[in-house]
Amino acid sequence: MAKSGHDLIDIKVHVWRQKDAKDPGKLVKYDVAGVSTHASFLEMLDILNEQLVAKGEEPVAFDHDCREGICGSCSMMINGRPHGGQKATTACQLHMRLFRTGDEIYVEPWRAAAFPVIKDLVVDRTAFDRVIAAGGFVTANCGSAPDANDNLIPKEHADKAFEAAACIGCGACVAACPNGSAMLFVAAKLSHLHHLPQGQPERLHRTSAVVTAMDAAGFGNCSNHYECEAACPKDISRDVIAEMNKDFAKAAFIHRDRSTKADGGG
């Protein structure tokens, strides 16, 4: 364990370099010397990029925005775990004090057919947006704001909704899953709305709509391995997937809804 002071470590990073979607790409090894143990993982990549720019090389492209663990941009696989594998931590919140001089660190993009690599560590996650567009919302008229106590919500329900709403859509669940399945993300979005009264009217329709969009995007199936739960930086539980599985059966067997009628089914 590093002292509380500011130590410097020398590490080797193997980073996935890929010019564009068509380039086959490869891992390239870089030496990064004098990294402060107080630096975050992304700051370490910034240091590497400064070295690359100084040498006239192309810096490593990676997604980042808030750098405080709330936006879900900083998607990357670190040593075989999404976000580096520290419990409930995003890559931007991972610190270099976890590493030691001489460590070799592998950094790769999320791997999934539904998340094609755009460049280096950056993947296209618009498949998640398509899932949200299919049903990750409530259809409500925007009138004036309702009175705060009009709609009573038990504390336990509000807590459950909030736990699911903590999802930042980073895609770590997809990256961690051996099948590239997005079920934890999709189920979290459903659970968020389905523990609130506002989510009830469209509940079964929403469930089947988002699952259909998820399948169309080319995500894999859940085999109940729960790697997603272990990788989630917001600690979202597999319980949300069980809720979605049950609602999906209800949607198929006992719900007659506008979309199934239009399909000629029902």
Binding site: W16, Y106, E108, P178, G180, G220, S223, H225, E229, A230
Partner: peptide, 25 residues
């Protein structure tokens, strides 16, 4: 379908929660 969902694998992949029994169904 699951194989198709991850056409390119990881150089380093470390499963932590899944079991050998689950992965070899």
């Amino acid at each position: 379908k699951n194989r198709a969902a991850r056409p390119v694998g990881y150089a380093v992949y470390r499963p932590v929660r899944s079991t050998a029994a689950g992965r070899s169904m």
